[in-house]
Design a protein around this nucleic acid. Structure first.
Lengths: 240, 240
DNA sequence: GAGTGGTCTAGACCACTAG
DNA sequence: TAGTGGTCTAGACCACTCC
């Protein structure tokens, strides 16, 4: 006997909503239809729709606002921004970041990158390199790799105009919202190039961060690799 | 007008359940009463109890098992163990850890530690220092600080017998379950002592991890500070 | 078969937002 | 006042575990 793989109704509704999100039927920031309307459309009770939306809200894909509606989550809201930027100053308030674009180019995906982004080796990718400073002192150096196909028209100028708020740019211009990411951290020694750009001695201990980001449906759409100077900042991690 | 601070019924039920957990009415691993029984006891519908339990399950305080009951979460289950141990080998399977107790003593809390653990300065604390190896090579060095009051009878022998599985020891012997923790990461250079104990050169880049752990009701009950050798391992972080 | 958690419904009412 | 999400109930039935 094949396993029946029982799937409750609310999960099928959830999948339908996910399809709409993935297909761009409702874009980041927009409201989805009301619970009652969805219930009518899918021929189920409001409670069933609620449970589907509950899960999507728990996964930070939707945001409920009582009295107003349910909205597609966005990287514009401040609470969301800090879920992805884990670097915090040792003391004092968070300061605005100064982002500096050091390089921008198109290239072909290496075997390794193709594997990570689920592309064919040799497919076009976009690479950008940047330096981020807080309060005038450089703290972060990173390379960002994107599938060229999904982000066709990206230019250095567009990135600069958006002041480097990449996730915001991606969702406003491409409807691609980064939903979750996995990071791998190591402690490394600064090489000559990084030391120069971060203003530290070669050999200085730096926090190396590799990040793979996913959009709806666990599709990988961004790879980052960077180093952080943690002399005056620390990386926050919550274990729950 | 003072704000009415409306609190829904299910949240009050949740608080009652939390009290039971905190007070030790049901210990880690035990089953709590069935939903119908709780509904009867609290004079609410089953649905309201369900919603309270839903939230506690989402916070990993309770575990539901269909057909069997709802149980107080424990650090014994393998899935839970990896929520707190974020170090993963670069390649290959996770290997069992060899834990070596290097020091164990009682001391008085410094002002800084007292602040972190919400104690009075000078109150008794327990400090233990240990080294952890994977596959024979030392990888992790850490100090653990505990409030002496809550963990009165802890001895070096007890820790050794438990093979250093501290969170397991705490909950089986003291009914104290670590529910969540906050970590702060930095990259640092190995000093002479750490280098010696980890078998690396002085100045080698190490990942420094400070951890504050909490039990029910966000009560801090453990402070850790350690360094990891990340030459063959990385620290996993999930951004959601 | 009895007991547990899991799903689904229908309906009533509350809290919040906006015009 | 109308429309939205949020709470609560009562009851039916399903899926799973254990005896």
């Amino acid at each position: 006997m094949a396993s029946p793989t029982f799937s409750p109704l609310y999960r099928q509704i959830k999948d339908l909503l996910l399809e709409g999100l993935r297909g761009g039927e409702w874009r980041p920031g927009e409201a989805i239809p009301s619970e009652l309307e969805l219930a009518g459309r899918f021929r189920v009770s409001q409670g069933t729709v609620r449970k589907a939306i509950d899960e999507l809200a728990a996964e930070n894909l939707l945001v409920r606002r009582q009295g107003k509606g349910t909205f597609v989550a966005t990287h514009g809201e401040p609470q969301v921004r800090f879920r992805f930027l884990r670097l915090t100053p040792d003391s004092g308030e968070a300061v605005a970041a100064q982002r500096e674009l050091l390089d921008f180019r198109r290239a072909r995906a290496s075997a390794e990158l193709a594997r990570l982004l689920e592309l064919k080796p040799g497919e076009q990718v976009i690479m950008l390199k940047r330096r981020i400073a807080f309060d005038g002192s450089p703290v972060l150096l990173e390379e960002v790799w994107l599938p060229g196909n999904r982000f066709k028209g990206v230019t250095a100028a567009a990135v600069t105009e958006h002041q480097g708020a990449l996730y915001n740019l991606f969702e406003t211009e491409y409807g691609t919202r980064m939903v979750r990411a996995e990071e791998r951290l190591k402690a490394v020694s600064a090489d000559a190039g990084a030391a120069e750009l971060l203003g530290v001695e070669p050999g200085h201990a730096l926090l190396q961060v590799e990040r793979l980001s996913f959009t709806y449906g666990d599709t990988p759409v961004e790879w980052r690799k960077g180093v952080y100077n943690t002399d005056r900042h620390y990386y926050r991690s919550e274990l729950g």
